[in-house]
């Protein structure tokens, strides 16, 4: 089967300016920026589930936000189905590859045309639902915003289908309630339903289970997986938890300090991690078999400040196998197998 890339990220940079103290402005000390995303490239094929794994601060959420046009990249291109999404978000869109005339739309319409096809699921189901809206209002809102010209009964059918696909059946039992009457897992299902009701092609799930009880996590992940089967949705799943990523994703990109350090099929990355950072992560991830003896790699130190990223390989201050060369040379990607690559000089 030939894989059609739905999303291609090319050399994405996102920097946030640091507010300078008054005294620094007087001293004219140079402006500082946080390098949230620092040169990320990858592609996602239609119908694929990609895991973006990394510690907090590694830039995985920022990648997701940029993909959806919620933030505008500092540099780089994000091609969603052939259109540069960063142009989409700023309203600079030129007509697409098929001469579809998108460039003639107003900025607002350009953003809407993106948001119809790409949606996000947020981390905290307790925070991402408006406490003063009913479940119905929450799930029907995307349809109202995008004004798809649906009749009342078609809207109801869509909302019902979205809620029931997400395991909230029967839908009428739930939609007159308020979020605080639901459990965390149910709320996250509502969030997913709210994203699905537009029938998007791409779903960015930003740590969708990190705030949930362990017992509910598997349910939500199974839900995402079944949605991929039922609706052929492409999912980017960001997480800091290798165990949940290994559970249902096809490929995995491991991020460290704003860059992807290892990218490959999930099974392969977890079984044979090549980058020392991935190796450390894998070695400390919990495994179901308590008798299995493993060598654990405990990393020293903390993630460096993203304002000033270490020279050479950004991982060298914490890397157990770093040499002098690592301090100087920024490692290129080394191809390990057809789809597996890692950025390390020591491979």
């Amino acid at each position: 089967m030939e894989k059609i890339p739905i999303l291609r990220i090319e050399d994405l940079y996102k920097q946030f300016p640091v507010t300078r103290k008054f005294i620094d402005r007087i001293k004219r000390s140079p402006k500082q920026v946080v390098h949230a995303v620092d040169g990320v490239s990858f592609t996602v094929a239609q119908g694929e589930i990609l895991a973006l794994v990394g510690e907090s601060g590694s830039g995985k959420t920022t990648v997701g936000m940029n993909v959806l046009g919620l933030q505008v990249p500092t540099k780089g291109r994000i091609l969603f189905d052939g259109h540069d999404v960063s142009d989409w978000a700023t309203g600079r869109l030129r007509s697409g590859k098929n001469g579809d005339g998108l460039g003639r739309l107003s900025r607002r319409k350009q953003i809407l045309s993106l948001r119809r096809r790409a949606q996000m699921v947020f981390q905290d189901p307790y925070e991402s639902l408006n406490p003063r809206q009913t479940i119905w209002e929450i799930v029907v809102e995307p349809l109202e915003i995008h004004n798809l010209g649906l009749r009342a009964n078609e809207k109801e059918a869509r909302v019902r289908a979205a809620l029931e696909d997400c395991g909230l059946a029967p839908a009428d039992h739930f939609w007159s309630r308020y979020p605080d009457e639901l459990s965390g897992g149910q709320r996250q299902r509502v969030v997913v339903a709210g994203a699905l009701v537009l029938e998007p092609e791409l779903l960015v799930a930003d740590e969708p289970v990190s705030m949930l009880d362990v017992s509910i996590r598997a349910d939500i992940l199974t839900l995402l997986q079944s949605l991929r089967k039922a609706r052929d949705i492409t999912i980017i799943y960001t997480t800091h938890d290798l165990a949940t990523a290994g559970y249902f994703t096809d490929r995995m990109a491991v991020m460290y300090l704003g860059r992807v350090v290892e990218l490959g099929p999930t099974v392969e990355v977890l079984k044979e991690p090549r980058h020392p950072y991935t190796q450390a992560l894998v070695s400390v991830a919990p495994v179901p078999n308590p008798r299995k003896r493993r060598q654990r790699v405990i990393l020293q130190g903390e993630v460096p400040n993203p304002i000033d990223i270490p020279s050479g390989c950004r991982f060298h201050p914490r890397c157990p196998i770093a040499t002098d060369e690592c301090k100087k040379t920024d490692p290129p990607y080394v191809e390990i197998s057809a789809e597996h690559e890692a950025a390390c000089l020591k491979i």
């Binding site: 948001r115 947020f122 925070e127 991402s128 639902l129 809102e141 969030v191």
Partner: peptide, 21 residues
């Protein structure tokens, strides 16, 4: 708060975010 970000991700206009959320 995140529900405002969510509304933005859905494509809600500023007016709608202010009035509804």
């Amino acid at each position: 708060r995140q529900f405002v970000l969510r509304a933005r991700a859905l494509g809600a206009s500023n007016y709608r975010i202010i009035v509804r959320h």
